[in-house]
Amino acid sequence: MMVWAQIVEVPEDINHLFDWPAVLPWGINRVVLLTFLATILTFLFLYIPFRKPRIVPTKFQAMVESLVEMVRNTIGKEVIGSESAKYEWLLIPMFFWLFFLNIFEITPFINFPVTSRMAIPAFLAMFVWVVFIFVGIKKQGLKYFINTLVPPGVPAPLLILIIPIEFISVFLIRPISLAVRLFANMIAGHMMLTVFFLTTSAYFVLGPKLIAFPVPFAFAVVITAFEVFVSVLQAFIFTLLTAVYIESSLHAEH
């Protein structure tokens, strides 16, 4: 460690990887700037191809269209059903925004997933929590809580056990796991990339071990490819679970 630190710039601890000082007033640091960038990219991504839409689409338009259709069909219609159109306003921006926030992890010269900071996953998870409770109350009235907490066909004595379990799993674990899944996946990916690229660079600089540097480098390349997949998958899963939670609020039965 001591030898490396003199030659390669090595972070003091894990926290150092994720700690960005504010560079502008109002606490705007690198993470916030990247959030803005992702927001702008998402908007342009969804806006430019459809500004002058064509029936025979350009390649870019066709790609965006197929992605939007994927969100609408695979996530919306297949999970929520006939009422999916009402929730597209949430699902479509959420998917693309999360995708851009995630893909920054392996974007050259950025190399930092915004979602590896807890702020945005936590906010989105809380937002989804509010949305699915709101939808439940709107659809089923206050009976929503009874329908959710008391599964049909359970004998009365068991309810003492079931109700707390259901309460914890629906109203506490759901948002927490939603946020943690995204956040932990991205932080783990970022740390893995850091470890392997630091090892590569350290071996490269340290002459005697030069022969070993392709090994961590190969790992780093493989993990980079894997993180592309993870970025898409986590955005997809987050949106899919949002749809699943909304669907579970629409109907009384489980």
């Binding site: 894990i14 926290n15 994720f18 700690d19 504010a22 109002w26 606490g27 705007i28 640091n29 993470v31 916030v32 959030t35 803005f36 992702a38 927001t39 998402t42 908007f43 969804l46 806006y47 306003w89 949430l90 479509i92 921006p93 925004w97 900071r117 807890m118 702020a119 945005i120 936590a122 906010f123 989105l124 937002f127 956040f183 932080i187």
Partner: peptide
């Protein structure tokens, strides 16, 4: 530090998302 949301990032994230949904 690692697992709690940063207040500035949280607020700017909320603002960004609301603006994004509105604009889109």
């Amino acid at each position: 530090f690692l697992i709690l949301p940063d207040i500035h990032e949280l607020i700017w994230g909320i603002v960004s998302f609301v603006v994004l949904v509105f604009l889109i």
